[in-house]
Amino acid sequence: MVLDPRLNHPALVERARHVRLLALDVDGVMTDGQLYFQADGQETKAFSTQDGQGIKLLRQAGVEVALITGRDSPMVTRRAAALGIEHVFQGSDAKLDLLRRLIQRLGLEMHQVAYCGDDLPDLAPIKRAGLGISVPNAPRYIREHAVWVTERAGGHGAVREICDGLLELQGHWASVLDTYLHGQA
């Protein structure tokens, strides 16, 4: 069974099989990229609950998840904690350096990383990760460097699409469905 026929591309299939870490930008990938400010100056963000479920399923399948974002936000800290994401890096555009340090600490290699981003600070990680991913709301010059551009936009299910695709391509999807079909979740 194939969820998405676009997942049949040989380069995508081969690269996805090796992924042991999914690293995500936040603004524009996990959110719609808009910044919302209340009258008191408090910043708010909207996250997709479907993305959160996908992250939980991917983690249960043994794939680590990391957030690497240039902005520093307490909402990112809270969302990561709610999803059990331990690897959270905020407030730096040196994303490739952060990613390299993380994979060294985890004992992984770059070909075992999927990275999804949507803007210039994400370009180097997209190019160097084993599976570079972007979203349709990213500028063309970012998307053209990705192996996979999601169908869904950032903040609107793009992360869930990635998680479901990785689960399928790594052979976990039937087990996920079986668990939920038989009420064992």
Rank of each mutant, 00 (worst) to 15 (best):
D40S: 13
Q42A: 06
Q42L: 13
E43F: 11
E43T: 14
K45Y: 06
S48I: 15
T49G: 13
T49H: 01
I55N: 05
I55V: 13
L57Y: 03
L57M: 09
R59W: 03
Q60Y: 04
Q60S: 13
G62N: 10
E64H: 13
E64S: 11
V65M: 10
A66T: 07
A66W: 06
I68V: 13
I68H: 06
T69C: 10
G70I: 08
G70K: 01
G70E: 02
R71G: 12
D72L: 13
P74I: 15
P74L: 15
V76Q: 04
T77H: 14
R78L: 14
R78G: 15
R79N: 08
A80L: 05
A82T: 10
G84M: 06
I85K: 07
I85G: 00
V88Y: 10
Q90E: 09
Q90W: 03
D93G: 00
L99E: 06
R101C: 11
R101G: 13
I103G: 01
I103Y: 00
G107P: 04
L108W: 05
E109A: 13
M110V: 14
H111V: 06
Q112I: 00
C116F: 01
D118V: 05
D119H: 07
L120M: 13
L120G: 01
D122A: 00
I126A: 09
I126S: 04
G130D: 01
L131E: 06
G132Y: 14
I133Q: 04
S134D: 02
V135Y: 00
V135H: 02
P136G: 05
A138C: 01
E144T: 15
V147Q: 12
V147T: 15
V147L: 13
T150K: 03
T150M: 03
T150W: 05
G155S: 08
H156N: 12
G157W: 12
G157R: 09
G157M: 11
A158P: 08
A158C: 08
R160Y: 05
R160P: 06
R160L: 12
E161A: 12
C163E: 03
C163I: 06
D164Q: 13
L166N: 04
L167T: 07
E168S: 07
S175N: 11
V176T: 15
L177G: 09
T179V: 14
Y180D: 12
Y180I: 09
